[in-house]
Nucleic acid binder design. Sequence first.
RNA 1: GACCCUAUCGUCUAGAGGCCUAGGACAAUACCCUUUCACGGUAUGAACCGGGGUUCGAAUCCCCGUGGGGUCGCCA
Length: 465
Amino acid sequence: MKVRTRFAPSPTGFLHIGGARTALFSWAYARRHGGVFILRVEDTDVARSTPAAVQAILDGMQWLGLAHDEGPFYQMQRMERYKEVIAGMLAAGSAYYCYTSKDELDQLRAAQEARKEKPRYDGRWRPESGKILPAPPAGVAPVVRFCNPVDGVVSWDDQVKGRIEFANVELDDFIIARGDGTPTYNFCVVVDDVDMGITHVIRGDDHVNNTPRQINLLHALQAPVPHYAHLSMILGDDGQKLSKRHGAVSVMQYHEDGYLPEAVLNYLARLGWSHGDDEVFDMNQFVAWFDLNHITASAAQFNTEKLNWLNAHYIRQADLSRLAADVASRLAVRDVATVAGPDLERVIALYRERAGNLNELADAVHPFYAMVTPSAELREQHLTPSACAALAALQDHFAGCPWQAAELGQAVKQTAAEQGLKMPQVAIPLRVALLGLPQSPAIDAVLEVMGRERVAERLSRILAV
RNA sequence: GACCCUAUCGUCUAGAGGCCUAGGACAAUACCCUUUCACGGUAUGAACCGGGGUUCGAAUCCCCGUGGGGUCGCCA
């Protein structure tokens, strides 16, 4: 049977890191088995769903490169189908109308909690043989409830957690359609999964408790039960639960923060899944390796430092043209143009191995394209009279020097020797003069890439002060 | 509170009863490389939650504690 998986976010906010991992695993599983990956938008909560959130999710998926094969499907567009199934269940007796008001429900819940019982619907409107139902109260729009089995157990072999069992007595007759006739989540999910032929439901841990209800519903509809794989949650860097107000950020924020999607993907793949000791791999490799039985059953804490390491790794691997395009746009945001300056790809080649993210790379490269003014502190510390004398001597050496790293390095060395200084005593003031910073890549490479005119201009400007 | 899940270095993890003197990676520390800062290399420290079983043998299986998490909506 062909594998069919789905990612089913509700559009009430951005795509965050936990959702992204769920999507990644669902996507990878389908790809691994030559199956189909479906995107389904669960927008039945009209009050909280927004088009902007739908777009944010689509953007996040696209940035990560998690392409769906079918969809996106929108539940709001499937109302007729849900109503049809509900009518069928009502007719078949596997669902019934319930006229209990919200107030009555609140009272019931309060009473149960007072008795330290698990709050649940008491089945007062459930038709049973020999039971006389009260007359439906006037003016109450009934909800539709599912006739959950009253005894026995529901169980399944969770692909990550192993066998899980629930006693049916723990489950109540949950609502499948609201008073206004619109269907609710557990019901829509089941109908959609059946209609879309989903074979593997890969989703967050928080759905474990919905699963027995959904399986019972599946039985009532005489539909096959898919395989389930419940992914445990991702905790924040501090071990705390990730939430909108605590640490949960949009995957697009990672883009903003200078992360490469392949780094985020590689990190996420490794968070809660493993393939022996392998740490660094691309998505082709991941898809070839991915399986459900190497997923960790317990929650994982997000570790930004490891993500940073992977990001630095991928920055070192990336095509220079891609990095240049990205960095140029980050600099453009700061009103720094790169077209007139030194070749951006060559500058990036010099700096990429010391950047943890693309914003740092942009920072590092920035001085090549904008006026440099070393801080007073740096001037005082490094641009001493003897250093300035050396820089002046350098100007002369540079004038007749072929503009090649080897010769330029030689010129710096020679100047140092002539001035009776050690190499760093010339190289560091030179860095401060050219870049406004005491550290840089190899000074000869910096000189070469910066170019004769720019170096001359910056040196004379510094020495003129 | 009830139900369900879970537990290996600070963190992510390897580990399917003997291969474990518990491995790798991030982070940390030290050293090497080096004209600076990085990169890279080498090395070091660092863990099987506790208690009972089962077994010739348990990080691995079972039970009980304890810790952590999830769920108990006419939200998804």
